[in-house]
């Protein structure tokens, strides 16, 4: 059976045992679907096997290999799996994953306001933290609140991990980062996750990077990484915001473009204000107007989910292969953890 066909094939009804209670998994359901249908308050976010926030551990029963896709070896060995991808073939006994397996302690090195709505946070992990520029981490506060942030840093260039936090009007984590977080405090990090990063081996491939708001963070990491790797093909980065102050790395990116002939920075303003050197309109519209044919391109998208989904389709129809379009799905929703005694 091909993997896709296997994935689509229904499985018979199975049982889960979690926290001493048995739950039925319908043939069409994943473990996560079943737990949510029974009203359990379990953490999850993307439901696509990317963010890993729905990870669980099986203490009895075998989980399908595809439910462990992308997990580190140590996590697999402990029976960890992603409940959103798991259509169980066996009855399973489940527990929440052990924190010490998934999380690494990190100390806040610096918090800077880059604009009224964006803070740059630099973190020092307590142990070596392997990642690719462009991946993302889940950041957990001491009370259990979790949010995912893309990494703007590059392993070979930066000593710290860097994330960009956008202040959201009702954002519990972002308000805390803006108003309270101080250097020296600690948070926990899980990850890294995500498959949108620079792959060496095709140095002349054109790269198209499109982001809005703090969706810029992973794109900067990818651009720096590609340039450090000696990428020779064109790298076009489109950053869109509504107001000029949202172009929070305008000077850095302008300088980067001056230093590298093959890197071009395209700031775009979708609001009414105009600024010298900035394109009027949305980043994705400008990008696709400039790049009508995307055959052979590698495309990275990050930001507001409806923009990302629309741009993904537009890039595909313009000729980019779906495997060459990278867009980690983020949904701006509350990520709550089950309270633990």
């Amino acid at each position: 059976m091909s993997s896709v066909a296997a994935e689509l094939a229904p499985t018979p009804t199975r049982r889960l045992r979690f926290a001493g209670v048995e739950y039925e998994v319908l043939p069409t359901e994943t473990v996560l679907d079943a737990l949510l249908r029974h009203g359990l308050d379990v953490p999850y976010s993307c439901r696509k096997g990317v963010c890993q926030s729905c990870m669980m551990r099986a203490t009895d029963g075998a989980v399908p290999a595809m439910a462990q896709h992308g997990l580190k070896d140590t996590l697999r060995d402990h029976g960890c799996f992603l409940s959103c991808l798991c259509r169980p073939k066996d009855d399973l006994d489940l527990v929440a994953p052990d924190d010490e397996l998934a999380f690494v302690r990190a100390t806040v090195a610096r918090v800077e306001r880059m604009s009224p709505a964006v803070a740059r946070v630099r973190l020092t992990p307590a142990e070596p933290f392997e990642y690719h520029a462009g991946q993302f981490v889940s950041l957990r506060r001491s009370d259990g609140l979790i949010r995912s942030y893309s990494l703007a840093s590059v392993p070979r260039l930066d000593d710290h991990l860097e994330i960009h936090v956008k202040r959201l009007s009702c954002g519990e984590m972002s308000s805390w980062v803006f108003d309270r977080l101080q250097p020296g405090e600690t948070v926990d990090l899980a990850g890294p996750n995500g498959t949108g990063y620079y792959l060496p081996g095709r140095p002349d491939q054109p790269l198209l990077l499109i982001g809005n708001g703090t969706g810029l963070a992973p794109l900067i990491g990818i651009a720096h990484d590609a340039l450090a790797e000696g990428h020779s093909g064109p790298i076009d980065l489109y950053h869109g915001t509504r107001h000029g102050e949202g172009l929070y790395l305008h000077r850095d990116l302008t300088e980067l473009a001056e230093r590298h002939d093959n890197f071009r920075y395209h700031p775009c303003l979708s609001g009414p204000a105009r600024m010298k050197g900035c394109r009027p309109g949305r980043a994705e519209e400008m990008a696709f107007a400039d790049h009508a044919a995307l055959d052979g391109h590698r495309v990275f998208l990050c930001g507001y989910p409806p923009m990302v989904e629309a741009a993904k389709k537009a890039a595909y129809l313009a000729g980019a292969r779906l495997d060459d379009i990278h867009a980690d799905p983020f949904e701006l929703r509350e990520l709550r953890r089950v309270p633990r005694d």
Partner: peptide, 9 residues
């Protein structure tokens, strides 16, 4: 996969 005569469910 199906119309290519491949293994499928």
């Amino acid at each position: 996969t199906m119309v290519f005569g491949g293994p499928n469910a």
